[in-house]
Each structure stands twice: as C-alpha cells, then as structure tokens.
Design a protein around this nucleic acid. Sequence first.
RNA 1: GGCGGCGUACCCAAGUGGUUAAGGGAGAGGUCUGCAAAACCUCGAUGCAGCGGUUCGAAUCCGCUCGCCGCCUCCA
Length: 472
Amino acid sequence: MGLQIYNTLAGKKEPFVPLREGEVRMYVCGVTVYDSSHIGHARSLLTFDVVYRYLKFLGYRVFFVRNFTDVDDKIIERAHQENTTAEVIAKRYIAEYQGDSQALGLFPPTQEPKATEHIAEIIALIRRLEEKGMAYRVGGDVFFAVGRFDGYGKLSRKKIEELAAGARVEVDERKRSPMDFALWKASKAGEPSWESPWGPGRPGWHVECSAMSTKYLGQPFDIHGGGRDLIFPHHENEIAQSEAAAALPLARYWIHHELLQIQQRKMSKSLGNFYTVQEILARHEAAALRHYFLGSHYRSPMDFSEQGLEEAEKGIERIYETIDRFRHSSPATNGAPQPDAALLEDFRREMDDDFNTPKAMALIFDEVRSLNRLIDEGEVSGLASRVSALKRAGEVLGLLQEQPESFLARKKERWMHQRGISPETIEELIRRRDRARKQQQWNEADRIRAELQEQGIMLEDTSGGTIWKVRP
RNA sequence: GGCGGCGUACCCAAGUGGUUAAGGGAGAGGUCUGCAAAACCUCGAUGCAGCGGUUCGAAUCCGCUCGCCGCCUCCA
C-alpha cells in the first residue's frame, strides 16, 4: 500500500509519491526566536522529527529544512524591553533552542536557515512579484495584492470575500484590499534594517519562508509542514507568493499537526498558559514527553497534563525494564542481531497510515508483553532478533536508544536529588535487611522494607540480589 | 457571522461501514514469592455525548440536539 499522508491541500489522505524517486524534500516552519520554546513547540518538533526519521527508515534520502524567524515585530519589541538589539535576542533564543533540540533528541535537519541571512533572496522574490504586477509599493512598504492571485484560499478553504467581510483586523488604510499583506516593511529608527530597492527595511513574515524553502529545496518540493494555526494566513500567503512568482506549485503535500492545549485552551505565548521545554525536562525524561506525544495521533488535539506525562514515563520504563530483563536472561552475543522482520513489517504498516504512532506504540507494548512472557518461561533463544527489532522501531520514533540501565539510573538519580536522599543510606538499610533475611528474621526485614517504602523506595528481591527502585 | 475539528471504559487514547471496540495508566482476582515487588494470566465499555434515520450490518454515513475547542489577528 505504501505511505499515505493526510494532505491539507487535498483534505484527505493520499498516497505519498515524491517528485524525484528515492528523495524527499521537506520544509517545516520553525520558531520565531523571541522567547523560550514551550512544549507546544516541542510537540511540533517531535512530530516532524518522527516524520523525518520515518521517511529515512523507508529508505528515502531526505532533505529537511527548518527555518528560524530571527527578524520580526516581537523580537524587536523584546529587544526594546531589554534595552538591547534584536540580534542579541535572536542569538540568545537560537542558542536556547539548540539546547532544547538536543535535549529532546531531535535528529538535526539538513539545513536550519535564518531569515536575516537570506535578505538577498527575499528581495529578489519581492522584485519578481513586483515585475509580475502582484505586488505594489506604498511609501517604503511593499504589499502583496491578494486579489490578483487566483488560487488564494485553496489551502485554508476560505473565500476572500468572506474573509474581508468578517475581518476583525485593523485595516491598514494604505492597502488596496484588507487581505493584502506586507512583503517588505520600512524600518523605523532603532529597528533592524537592510538596504533594498524600496529603501531601508525588513522582510514581512511570510516571505522569508517562501524564499528559503525554494532556495534549498526548489519549487515545487514534496512536503511542507507546520502547526494547524499556520494554515491561515501564513501558509496561504506562502503559497500565494511563491506560486505567483514562479507559476509553479509551492509544495505537494501539506502536513499540519494539531495543537497542544492546556486546560481546554490552546497553549500559547499570548495566553501565557504554557510550560517551557526546559521546565518540563527538568522534571521528566525527554523520552516520556516523546512517548506522551506519540501516544496521540499528530492530527488530534491534546490536552496537556502532568499525569499523562507520568504515565508515559512509566511506559518507557516498562519497555527498558523488559530489554534489561532480556539482557540479564540470555548470554551476550557478538554484535546486534538482524532485527526480526515480522515486527518491523507490522510497524511499517501502521506508520504507513499517516504516521499512526499510537498504533505503533501499541505494537511495541504487545511485543513487550510477549517478550516478558517468554523470558518468564525461560524461552530466550531467538529473542535477540525480536529485541533488536523493538529497538529499531524505537529508533524510528526517537525512543529506546539508551542502555536500559543508564535510563533507569538517571531517573533514579533525579528522583533522589529532588528529595535529598543519598543512595548510601538506602544501600546500608538494604544490607541490614539482607542480614536479617539470611537469619529468617522476617519481622525485621519487613520493617526495613516498610521504612524504605515510606520514603518511596521499592525493593525487589531477585535471583541476583536485592535491587531497589523509586516510585513517583 | 463564516470555515474546521472534537465528545470512545475510572483517566489517557487508537479505531471512520462488516471478526470478540487496539494500546497505556489506575483498579480487582490469580500464578510466582518467607512476605512483597516486578513479570505473566484473567477480569473490565452488550456499547462509542443524546435522539432520529440510511443499511442485511454503524462508534464509523446522513439529520437534528447538547457540550467543548480551534482558525478567520501574532501564534507550533
């Protein structure tokens, strides 16, 4: 059947056929760097990280571009507040973003272009639009004439007349039509500015994506992605600009993920109801956040909850525990065995259906149960390839790439650190309990266990000795 | 006002015409264990917001009603 992608432009799932065989060119709208990334951004990043990884898993050579918007009204506003320059603000949050990306375990895109480094391309694009009569100049500003582009509204399924009628936006009187949007803005004093045929100024928001996507990927390219909230006007405007300029489609498949909500409201900077990526990663494993997001389909809205995140973390722990059990129950082998084909075939079937990660996770958990059962029964021969397939599927989802013990140990350490408990005192108590157990002093042994349990520490007596775990 | 989406077990969440409605978390019973824990086994929605309709057959299609959300303005 092959990969099916829900294409916003078509309004339905379509078989994915790239323009050039064996090669996929994909552009995703990145962040505007005026503040810390929140977990809504993280959902976006992780969604496309999995798309990227899955396309590679399918054997495509993938060119993946994700931009930085590093010149914009909000960056300028922030710079004024802090009495510094837009450049300083942008630089700070790009660095922070890169830290977040790494912490989230994102596979690096092929290119991460910045708007400010593509002013020449942006100007060239606007000039082309002027030449074609699609743009007009008012003072030092240049606007795109929406009414002159026939396909306007085809992505968002909006009609220009209705938009204009219901517009709540303050209309700039200089525009010929309320729907026209700025391609180039004249700079005021103290704002970032570049020389241009229209005088000193800076690019409008939408035009940078048109300029950068087509520079790196050509036109048309295969996949353009972003959050649902970007469909209108951002992506609609990108289409208008690029298609008017080149008389070619911009992108063939448009992927939009749903938004993260919190307490039934969209999580957003303007509402102030967000957690930053850093806040969440201080309390939870990145793998927990990833699993939490992948447990819902990318086109479903999600209402964020820390309880959900904790449950997701338990799930990851369970998978790692299983891998760990397998390693302890079977002799070490040389090198990684060939992954079992059956699991990967099932995995592929689910992921082929518009990246159905919840079903992919369900498969992984089915496999975990099956593996645990066989380990319980001592039937460990032949499991190595199945564990290997599990890890391979995990890799495509960006999960299960650590040594189980290091994942489990890190979680334990953070837990103890937060509560100020040292492992030495715990281990001393465990030794005392072991002595009591050897002498069959069960009351004393159980008393020590109860004492530890009060601190949230669970003991497990295994054949290899007593191990301990933390319980949130 | 226009356009779009959502409502599935205690919680989260797949499933969009046809086997017993995935999976995770929590819970109950059991196996194992000195006792536990982990793991495994079993149980758990005769029903998918409500009411009608189409169909041999509907969570899935159609209509109406109720509740919630998003976009139309910067937004992932």
